[in-house]
């Protein structure tokens, strides 16, 4: 398969089941809502080193948030359901509770699985906290120096998917970056999808384990490192000098497939030789995103 002279490899991205919560952070204005959202989702690129993966899903206008103020929705993901409340309590407590004017709401009110967040953070109120039931949901009012921090008691948790991906194999670093930027732009702001890496882009794709250190769970994906061509078992076609990757997490396979379709289509441009994907032979992750099937609608 070729799209605008870019070869689409006959392969698939292998992804994993993760647990997902959606947070809605609002603030007095977009600036402060964004400040909290960025802090909350900072250092949350990969569970390998960050214990969670998170990013802004989309910006919400005032009319779409529970309290009628501008805000951001965030998808927050962990590998296990026990980890999700732990990480949420840590991060909401340190980055939203602390941020002027913000409030934090559950963005998955219909999810039957609920994890306590406000129910733990309330203890910061040292006995002065108060709860309110509003529309059948409990909220905690935690007194802070600014006034009050409002946080929902429980957040919905669903099963989602992490690790959807594709790699752009390009003739130059500039071409790879342009393709990655275009792909990330096309995939951003979609409901149910996040790109947890910086700007949505990864330059340091990894393979499972290490050639030398047994305790390492991941190390550089040498088969795709252009500087190692000739000294490793490369998978780079002739003429490829730079590779960038997009990693996609989402609430469901349909949302991820749709985002990959838009991203790959945007990445098929001059200077890109091929699009491929990372997998582990299909043995580790239960979710497989076949590039050619996904692109069949637009090829």
């Amino acid at each position: 398969m070729n799209i605008r002279n870019v070869h689409i490899e006959d392969t698939f991205a292998e992804a994993f089941t993760m647990r997902v919560a959606r947070l809605i952070i609002t603030g007095r204005n977009v600036r402060w809502a964004r400040e909290a959202a960025l802090k909350l989702t900072g250092f949350a690129t990969s569970v390998i080193g960050c214990k969670c993966e998170a990013a802004i899903e989309r910006e919400l206008p005032a009319g779409e948030t529970p309290d009628g103020r501008p805000g951001f929705s965030i998808l927050f993901m962990t590998m296990s359901k026990d980890d999700l409340p732990k990480r949420l309590i840590e991060r909401v407590g340190q980055t939203v509770l602390t941020c002027p004017t913000t409030a934090c709401f559950d963005g998955m009110p219909d999810a039957p699985d609920r994890v306590g967040v406000g129910s733990a953070l309330r203890f910061f109120g040292d006995g002065f906290q108060a709860s309110k039931m509003i529309g059948g949901q409990r909220f905690w009012r935690i007194p802070v120096m600014e006034g009050e921090f409002l946080v929902q008691e429980k957040f919905g948790m669903i099963k989602g998917i992490g690790g959807g991906n594709f790699l752009m194999l390009a003739r130059s670093a500039d071409a790879a970056l342009e393709a990655a930027e275009a792909a990330a732009e096309a995939m951003s702001g979609r409901a149910g999808v996040i790109l947890p890496f910086p700007g949505g882009v990864v330059r340091s794709g990894s393979k499972v384990g290490s050639r030398r250190i047994k305790s390492m769970i991941a190390s550089t994906n040498d088969a795709f490192c252009p500087t190692l061509r000739g000294i490793t078992e490369t998978q780079l076609p002739e003429g490829v000098n730079s590779v960038l990757e997009i990693v996609i997490n989402g609430t469901d396979a349909e949302a991820i497939s749709a985002a990959m379709r838009a991203g790959i289509d945007a990445a098929c441009r001059d200077g890109v030789v091929a699009i491929t994907a990372g997998n582990y032979g299909g043995k580790l992750g239960p979710h497989h995103f076949h590039l050619r099937k996904i692109m069949a609608a637009t090829a």
Partner: peptide, 15 residues
């Protein structure tokens, strides 16, 4: 106590 904008009240009034 103080004069402020209670977020929970905004939520209630919008509801």
């Amino acid at each position: 106590a103080c004069t402020y904008q209670p977020d929970h009240l905004r939520l209630t009034l919008l509801r």
